[in-house]
């Protein structure tokens, strides 16, 4: 009986490993590192993300947006202070998913890079500093502009449904930011984030 389960477990592992290929959003070595540092559950999240994103690649932009928004909104909320002992920290998508916790900026970052992987033009995506009128707190969402003049769609971790900005009366936009628009790295948080991603920080 024990032998049977062992064989089954090995077969599952082999199947999983064959599913990971070179064009995946997250590389095998990163997933191995995640498993080593965290646990097999964390690893599974990464593999699932890879599979989901792979499936979404040929699909329409709006479907991609929805899938990515839904996937990352499943991650739990936590403040930077309790997670990183810092008041404001921009976590890499891998840190965010590995810990399975994060604050509003971390959701925005994870969604942004996943959508970029899926082929969305980043000039349509903005890190948007907003004020939550409902909670009267500063907040950040990811906004998607289909055209430069269109009303953006809001990808929010507080409200899972993607709505046009005009229907989000609970949010007041303050400032749009897109790191890719800058000719040179010179945004402190953004630069640090890119550096951490480059270092494959998990």
């Amino acid at each position: 009986m024990l032998k049977y389960y062992s064989m089954k477990f090995i077969l599952i592992l082999l199947t999983i490993s064959t599913m990971i290929n070179a064009n995946d959003y997250i590389s095998k070595s990163t997933i191995d590192k995640v498993e080593h540092k965290y646990n097999s559950k964390a690893k599974k999240r990464f593999i699932t993300l890879n599979n989901n994103l792979r499936d979404e690649l040929p699909k329409d932009e709006l479907i991609k947006i929805k899938k990515v928004n839904d996937y990352f909104n499943k991650v739990g909320y936590s403040t930077d202070i309790s997670l990183y002992n810092q008041k404001d920290y921009w976590a890499t998508p891998n840190e965010f998913l590995a810990k399975n916790l994060g604050d509003c900026e971390d959701y925005v970052i994870a969604k942004y890079f996943a959508l970029r992987y899926l082929g969305l033009n980043t000039s349509k995506l903005y890190f948007t500093y907003v004020r939550s009128t409902k909670f009267n707190t500063p907040h950040m969402v990811l906004t998607y502009f289909e055209t430069p003049d269109s009303i953006p769609l809001v990808l929010d971790n507080n409200k899972f449904e993607i709505l046009p900005a005009t229907k989000r009366e609970d949010l007041k936009p303050i400032y749009y930011f897109n790191g890719e628009l800058m000719k040179k790295k010179k945004h402190k948080k953004w630069d640090q984030l890119l550096e951490n991603i480059k270092r494959d920080k998990i």
């Binding site: 502009f145 003049d149 628009l181």
Partner: peptide, 17 residues
């Protein structure tokens, strides 16, 4: 000479760069 860029908006509408 360094050149910095920022997005200008008005409400949810993007005005320019």
């Amino acid at each position: 000479a360094p050149e910095a860029v920022a997005q200008v908006s008005s409400g949810w509408k993007l005005i320019g760069i």
